[in-house]
Nucleic acid binder design. Structure first.
Lengths: 193, 193
DNA sequence: TGTATTACTTGATCCAGATCAACGGGCAGT
DNA sequence: ACTGCCCGTTGATCTGGATCAAGTAATACA
């Protein structure tokens, strides 16, 4: 359970055995079955969650009832409604499991306490958030600047695993496209553009 | 020059006078005149920049030559091509000044060194990036989920200062709209929807 | 203080991608 | 093995916002 976690943390900061065991104490383990919810829109998001096994999705449902994917998180990724978690406001995202999953959860209070006890973890999360921000910034520009086909090709190149692992209709939603549109785009690409 | 800077840092972490003077030594001050560039697409972004006075914009230019705004930064905000800065890759954004501006620049090497000497700054940047990430995540969903009019109204409510301070055609670009579209939207709103 | 350049508006037309509709194929549960 | 249904495909049509075009107001600059 913690193996995947430590191997990820150790890529960014070093930890003693002592620190590792302190670290563990701030987390709670949770299993989630396929289709089970970790968070529902309207609640306050209490946890930052590390995925040690499985696959989760985070998505928003608009007034018309349409789903809009925010992100997918599998082994080695964190997920949360980070806005809700940070500012203690109502969540805008739902998070549920696309596959049976194993998680490590930490509350905001524990995160604060943990980083005070082990300041290196501020560095870990600083780097984590910095990298996520960088990626999200590029995705936002891509979303405003490119055609549907260009966006799909960019995604396929930058994140081929997502395309293998996540159903096509959810990929469409992630790109802000109708499922029919993505289907047609893939057909065109297969026919040599 | 550093007054605005310290007042912002102190909102998130406390600092001794000693630490303040150490902190200062890692930054370089820079003035930028209106229309002058801080960064051009294709370079590597060497600095994370704090705006102590003025207004900058960060934007991407696509193959057709169209500009797509990424963000605006005024007093108390940071700007950078964070992807380029973090991963030492070619910048995708241009950054230039919309008003005469005063900046504090820090290199990646100095940022790393500074956070090692003053670990509290890891916490400062952890919180900064966490908040930016939260905001960007919401903006991305908004961009994929709402109509042009809804996006404008949301922006006007959540960030009225931006609308006052930034020219309308740049706001349009920030929202991923043609300037004509935003003009019409504002007209409709003025006419009572 | 005049003129040039840039910002904003308004109208007419166009198009990428959404929506609606119908069908086939795979796989999940009994 | 059967059946139900979810998922992807394909076709036909519609539409929000882009694009093209022209005029007007505002700001800068000399």
């Amino acid at each position: 359970m913690f193996d995947v976690f430590f191997s990820h943390v150790l890529k960014k900061v070093s930890l003693t055995e002592e620190e590792k065991s302190v670290l563990k104490s701030f987390f709670v383990a949770k299993n989630l079955q396929k289709k089970e919810f970790l968070l529902q829109e309207g609640e306050v998001c209490k946890y930052l969650s590390f995925v040690s096994k499985g696959l989760l999705r985070s998505y928003h449902i608009d007034e018309k009832g349409d789903e809009h994917m925010n992100l997918f998180a599998w082994e080695g990724w964190w997920t949360s409604d980070i806005y809700s978690f940070s500012f203690n406001e109502t969540a805008q995202f739902n998070i549920d499991a696309l596959e049976d999953s194993e998680l490590l959860l930490i509350t905001r209070e524990n995160l604060d306490e943990m980083t005070l006890q082990i300041p290196k973890m501020d560095r870990y999360f600083r780097i984590l958030f910095q990298n996520s921000l960088a990626t999200k910034e590029r995705r936002l520009v891509s979303s405003n600047s490119y055609t549907a086909k260009e966006k799909y090709i960019q995604l396929a190149e930058s994140n081929p695993q997502m395309i293998q692992r996540v159903p096509q209709n959810l990929i469409a939603s992630y790109l802000g496209l109708a499922p029919e549109t993505l289907s047609r785009i893939k057909k065109n690409i297969a026919l040599g553009k």
